[in-house]
Amino acid sequence: MEEPAGPAWVKSDRQLRREAELRGRARRSISIATASTVLVAVLLVILVTSSPGWPRVRETFFDFGQLAESFPDVLRGFLLNVKIFVIAEPIILVLGLVVALVRGLRSPVFFPLRALAVFYTDVFRGIPTILLIYLVGFGIPALQLQGAPNDPVTLGIIALVLSYGAYVAEVFRSGIESVHPSQRSAARSLALSHGQTMRYVVVPQAVRRVVPPLLNDFASLQKDSALVALLGPLEALRQSSIHAASSFNYTPYLCAAALFIALTVPMARFTDHLAARAARRQMGAGHV
């Protein structure tokens, strides 16, 4: 773009004064925010440490000896949690998208598939995840089917996939439905088939919109990977309970909690960042 001819811009004194005033205000707000945060933190610490039970809590939850002793095992267990959700997440994404797309098929030929997809989401969203872990973890091996998995980690992953796949399918479906029908009309008028319309026009837009809620579900999946402990594998929660049981000290639990937080916080900030970016882009694209 060429600059139109005309006078060159030199900041006026008025504009310079305005910017100085804005900078001053920004500095004042930051100082106030910092002061109030420190104050709240100090008050909280005083409140907790002055409570009558504090000495006892400090002993059982903040024991550095115990922390040092249990940390390697808890960390090793946590790596199993990471493995569980790293395997589960892509499978959940694929399953969720497929179920959402099947629910969108209109032709009567696909009625049985569509009914199956509806049945799946209804049932598996309704069962508490913890119950599903028990049902899959103990039910499938009990069937004694040829070739059915009986390794607890695999069973745990299957249960998590079934449970979260149903949620994620609904997230995808709402994303697909949020794409304005005029986009479909436009694609169909260009002679794209239903499948091509979904693949090139609807799903790419839907996926962009559902990234923040999906990441939210994944934060929750990361936590729920601890439920696999119920089936016995030595992941973070189980490692901490073993240590806690042998020492009557709960510091290992706090250690496991810290590890989970260390993973979810960056993801939460990343989600915020993506949501903010999506909001900015939406403002740029005000049309339907």
């Binding site: 005029s182 009309s185 436009a186 837009q205 962009r208 694209a285 049309h287």
Partner: peptide
């Protein structure tokens, strides 16, 4: 169409 309906992505 009246509202263009270009594919925004």
């Amino acid at each position: 169409f009246q509202s263009y309906n270009l594919f925004p992505h």
